[in-house]
Design a protein around this nucleic acid. Structure first.
Lengths: 373, 373
DNA sequence: CATAATATGGCATACGTATACGCAGATGCC
DNA sequence: GGCATCTGCGTATACGTATGCCATATTATG
């Protein structure tokens, strides 16, 4: 390979732009902010190549020789160069960023974020980092016009939507997203009729597992705390699973034992009180979430009912709090790490125009003393 | 005001760009992706003004008449136009985005994020939303080169750094940040000698408050669980406050009662065990964090020591978990909402070249049954 | 030795917006 | 009515990168 005189190889246009720009701090820089951030032109000048070649080298195009690439990379490192995200995104029409939107049911004054999603945040962040994606995050009130903002303004290539609560409420927005071609994935109940790709745990299977566990312990009258209608499809799936387990053992589910409860500790507490006060007999509680279960345990303790002696209690989610209740809570663990990975992977597939089907993830029973004391 | 024939007012250059571009879907669009996102040129064409006028109108420049602005805004709304974030940021060299970096001490396989910071996330997000800032989020291992990436690549205008743990470990990075002119704020111990702006609670005052509370309850031998050296300045401040309170009452702090403990439940548990096993007499525990306190309560319960009868226990942070221990934990509440606001405000000030001093926020005593049962 | 096929990298340009500058018309003032 | 001033807006251009197309040098092929 011949040795080049560097200068002789420098393209003409380049010389002007780089020298005047940063190369040797020419005077044309005078009136401007002294930011002095090196650009791909500077790298190009130093390396004796054209700016496009720098771009190609750094993005790993195969049409640049190994030697050139190495030279460019070395110089880039030396100058502490990093590609300007805005210019790059503008030109390529790809931001390599995804937006994570949390929905909040209540007024967002407090940091009353669903702890389960907070935990999932870690997994999603990690997976994004692995893929070199930036992650934008935002909490949304239902009234917000988030559905317009992100992809339209090229802030993000796609959206991940997280939010317990009444799914029907924002179904319209989802339709609109599909309409304008926005890429998105939801966490929730996986269902044929869903709008867009959905990732979720096998709630029905998990419900069955929970039921089998409790039945195996000799419980027969299992109360289900969780709103089990189309507004809370995940809760509904869990309830359906429980019913299947009961029926498989020849036990008819008693509608009086199912209570509509939203995902709040207070509600779990109140519903349990009511069960007790009404004198409905029950020997187990399957709460649709750990949060609800915590409330239930509280109410039972107050009523002097022994857990698990008189009433066994199960939750769902395996929040950190679950292992710290008294007694520690048997629950269903959802695989958050996997969930994060799959959510991001599904979204990435969609962005890259690959197949991106909805997916169901397995859940796992975690037995603690609230059922098997 | 005269009525213009729209076309007659349209600038020449504009006509070409808009008509060919999107205006009426001219054939020059053929080979391209059918994205059809309207641009400021389209708005301009429809409004019979030039593109720069659209930009000015939408950004609220005062050099555009009310009538023109209204017309432009109406059209923009009608076309569902939103400013391209990348182009805007590229041109203005401002991303209107800030990056939130969490530091993790341990290997980041689990979602073992410090729950205190997770709670603060809500406040920060909210404040960013209020100011129209986007928020990028990332978890960092100490080895990462985050200090180069964000501002250099124009992803973000500034950084918020959160991370318990050994501050000395990344002091060098902070220096580098200052060196390259990156804007950042930290949460931590506020101190004259700090590098860059810092926002934090009044840890020393809070420590004194805690001490006074316990002393007021008749406790005299107060164990402090938390590493109190320059590596954990916040813990050190809390300890110093406690010592001040003791000395103010004529009690000499006993070094045997201070134990170096990092912010983990297990460590709190272990340290408490050791105190008990060593036979050091103590009638109160002031843990440097709620997490540590939870471990301490556990160890005390195991040893059959009544809380607060024999040993009163206090924590710090007021995590959700604090109200769910048994007995519920007396603690110091840091004002997260305010913290988020001040962090963002401080960073924004810095970005806008305004004065951005470090700030100390007041903390509040929350009395629960672990001290006053 | 002639010609075709690669490999490498330059040239021109587009991405969509924001801003320095200047120009016309309107207004004020004497 | 002449001149300075101010409004309101157009012209030109820059921000920094990525990519289609083409030119040259190199190698392979007959």
């Amino acid at each position: 390979m011949p040795k080049y005189s560097l200068l002789s190889r420098v393209p003409a246009t380049l010389l002007q732009r780089s020298i005047a720009g940063h190369g040797d701090f020419g005077k044309s820089r005078m009136g401007r902010k002294p930011t002095n951030r090196p650009t791909s032109f500077d790298i190009a000048y130093r390396a004796g190549v054209s700016q496009p070649t720098v771009s190609r080298a750094l993005r790993g195009s195969k049409s640049v020789s190994a030697a050139t690439r190495a030279r460019i990379e070395a110089i880039a490192r030396e100058l502490n160069y990093s590609v300007d995200k805005n210019a790059s995104s503008l030109r390529s029409q790809r931001s390599n960023t995804i937006a994570l939107l949390f929905f909040e049911e209540q007024a967002p004054d407090d940091s009353k974020i669903n702890p389960f999603f907070l935990a999932m945040l870690g997994a999603i962040t990690r997976e994004c980092a692995n893929r070199g994606l930036d992650l934008l995050i935002s909490f949304q009130k239902l009234e917000d016009d988030w559905h317009v903002r992100y992809q339209d303004s090229h802030r993000a290539d796609g959206l991940i939507l997280l939010g317990y609560g009444d799914y029907k409420l924002y179904e319209g927005r989802l339709r609109q997203l599909v309409g304008q071609g926005t890429h998105f994935v939801r966490w929730g109940s996986v269902n044929e009729a869903n709008i867009g790709a959905t990732v979720g745990s096998d709630n029905r299977g998990a419900g069955r597992m929970a039921g089998e566990h409790l039945i195996g312990l000799g419980r027969r009258r299992i109360a289900f705390l969780g709103q089990a209608d189309e507004h809370y499809p995940e809760f509904a799936d869990r309830y359906r699973g429980l019913c299947e387990a009961l029926e498989a053992c020849g036990i008819a589910p008693d509608p009086a034992l199912q209570r509509d409860v939203v995902n709040l500790e207070d509600m779990g507490y109140a519903a349990t009180r009511r069960l007790i006060d009404e004198g409905v007999p029950f020997d187990a509680v399957f709460a649709a979430s750990d949060t609800i279960a915590v409330g239930a345990i509280c109410a039972l303790a107050e009523a002097g009912l022994a857990v698990p002696g008189e009433v066994a209690v199960m939750g769902f989610d395996d929040l950190p709090a679950a292992s710290r209740t008294n007694p520690p809570l048997t629950t269903i663990m959802q695989d958050l790490k996997r969930a994060g990975e799959v959510l991001v992977e599904t979204l990435a597939a969609q962005i890259e125009d690959r197949e991106a089907p909805s997916r169901t993830l397995p859940a796992r029973l975690v037995v603690r003393r609230s059922t098997s004391g």
